[in-house]
Simulated assay, not measured.
Amino acid sequence: MSVRVVIVDDHPVVRSGLHALLAAQPALEIVGQAGSGAEALDVVARTAPDVVLCDLRLGEGMDGVEVTRTLRNRSGAPAVVILTTYDHDGDIVRAVEAGAAGYLLKDATADEIAVAARAAARGEDVLGPALTERVVGAMRTRRAELSPREREILGLLAEGLSNRQIARRAFLSEATVKTHLAHVYAKLDVDGRTAAVARARSAGLLP
């Protein structure tokens, strides 16, 4: 029995390319395509697919995470696999928290996408070990519970400001800034400014 698939991507060429690649795969049937989040919800309602392959960025309106969350809250929800060019821990965590069964990059082969779609249709998660480890790490970081002041200091740090400049901007003493930074480093489990900013960005704590 074929797995029924809907492809969601805001680029027509990408949709056509995925359709051509996946239509040639055994046990897959492409039953619909959509170019936006709103269109995706409509197409899914009409075609009742087993799996939705959804891009993360869909232009204006709903993004792939919002589409995932909305679909997964419906009765008889299809599995959703995010297929994107964005390899950011924060995006992966958002997708998983919204209910996505998996997260693949667009450089995946047709065979890899087909395997993921069939696995998702069986109710399996299709995050590889490496991505699973990254998701767990990012979620742990997001739960670090930085205080509002620590988030403010972290944001100023991300702007490349020195401790003295941060102190002036935040109306604090340099000693207090250093104390806040020590707490931030400990909560993020890092040992310096650059690592703190990188960890915070990947976990979605910074824009």
Rank of each mutant, 00 (worst) to 15 (best):
R4D: 14
R4P: 02
D9K: 03
H11I: 07
P12D: 10
P12K: 05
V13F: 12
V14W: 04
A20N: 08
A27S: 15
E29A: 13
V31W: 01
G35N: 04
S36G: 04
L41N: 14
L41T: 07
R46D: 11
T47P: 01
V52A: 06
D55N: 12
L56S: 08
L58Y: 03
G64N: 01
V65M: 06
E66K: 04
L71S: 05
S75C: 15
A79N: 10
I82T: 02
L83Y: 15
T84S: 13
Y86E: 12
V93F: 02
A100M: 08
K106S: 07
A110M: 06
D111I: 08
V115T: 12
A116Q: 03
R118P: 00
A119K: 06
A121P: 09
A121Y: 01
A121M: 05
E124I: 10
E124Q: 11
E124C: 10
E124D: 10
D125W: 07
D125N: 10
L127K: 01
P129W: 05
A130V: 15
R134V: 06
R134M: 09
V136A: 07
A138R: 04
T141D: 01
A144W: 10
L146M: 12
E150P: 03
I153G: 03
I153W: 01
I153L: 13
G155W: 00
G155R: 07
L157E: 06
E159V: 09
L161N: 10
S162R: 08
N163W: 00
F171T: 13
L172E: 04
S173V: 10
S173N: 15
S173H: 14
E174K: 06
E174G: 13
A175D: 06
K178A: 08
T179P: 03
H180E: 11
L181Y: 06
Y185R: 11
G192T: 02
A195Q: 15
A195F: 05
A195W: 09
V197L: 13
R199Y: 15
R199C: 03
A200T: 06
G204T: 12
G204V: 04
L206N: 15
